[in-house]
Simulated assay, not measured.
Amino acid sequence: MNTSVVICAYTEDRWDDIAAAVASVRAQTVPARELLLVVDHNPELHLRLKRAYPDAIVLENAHERGLSGGKNTGAEAATGVYVAFLDDDAVADPGWIEGLESAMAQPGVVGAGGATRPLWATRRPRWFPVEFDWTVGCTYKGMPETRAPIRNVMGGNAIFRREVIGAVGGFSTGIGRSVEGGKSRPLGCEETEFCIRLTQRLPGSVLLFEPSAGIGHRVPAARETFRYFRARCYAEGLSKALVTQSVGSGDGLASERSYTFKTLPLGALKGLVTLRPGRSVAIVVGLAWTTWGYLVGKARR
């Protein structure tokens, strides 16, 4: 048992989701060394989880509020050779840990991420392009389909060697959700910045995409709307501006160049050929809103 699993939680509104995530970790073909539940500054949820899961390690976020602080808290308390992170609204396939550990056993590998599929509350909207499944935290068209090196993993389905997390300073708490004009922006990219910083500081380090390590990620009805889609794209642009400020635009936008100039044009063309123009329009709008968010973020800094 080499892997410590960390699930970060912040609200009791996701209680059923958290329970499903915990159950999926307990059902693994390769057992976890330990399960750590990290609560983000919510004493009521912390107490409720301690009562419900006495066999788990339930901790309060010891750092700044947010997902990065929670992940750092979990990594610091973990004792496994590896630390795996699972979203609190996701369920891991039974072979999730087995797949991740298989990837970690490859030479030079310090981190890996698995395939994340959307679990739609209703069904995928006809206009929703698979090239933008990242807006709902899932694997998207343009990512590898077989085991392959990648620049960064997706944070809700990831594993790292425990010692490298601390060696490079952990996850940045300067990137995450923010309040802008009274509204919460769904910012992210903590894992992107961390992975780039990791490979910059530890040359020769390899990150892998491992499709056999699958999870399902819940997509609530509120995230199936075009309004959320645009907001998430704009927020991604803002986040990418923060990432490039930290690690430079060369590495910070390396994957995005191929995605923008190859994956998206092909996706827009396919939407027209298959008589699904809504998807083509969504691709154009998504790219425009993401670019606008990036330019706004750069201008602010």
Rank of each mutant, 00 (worst) to 15 (best):
K270N: 09
S246A: 15
T260C: 08
Y259M: 06
E256M: 13
K262V: 15
T244Y: 05
G250D: 15
L275H: 06
A282F: 03
T263L: 03
K262C: 08
P277F: 09
T290L: 13
V273R: 14
T290P: 02
L287G: 15
V284E: 10
G293N: 02
R276A: 07
F261Y: 14
L275T: 03
G250E: 15
S255V: 06
T290S: 12
T291G: 14
L269F: 03
V243H: 11
S246L: 10
G286H: 12
L253Q: 13
S255Y: 12
P277V: 08
S280Y: 02
K270W: 04
S246R: 14
A254M: 14
R276Q: 05
V243I: 10
F261M: 05
P265Y: 12
T274G: 03
T290N: 10
T263E: 07
A254T: 11
A268R: 00
S280A: 04
S280H: 04
S258K: 13
R257P: 00
I283M: 09
Q245L: 08
S255I: 04
Y294G: 00
T244H: 07
L242Q: 14
T290H: 12
G252P: 04
G252T: 05
K240S: 05
T291A: 14
R257I: 15
T290K: 02
L275A: 09
G248Y: 13
T244L: 07
Y294D: 00
S280F: 01
V281A: 12
V285P: 00
T274L: 07
L272N: 07
E256S: 12
G271E: 08
T263P: 07
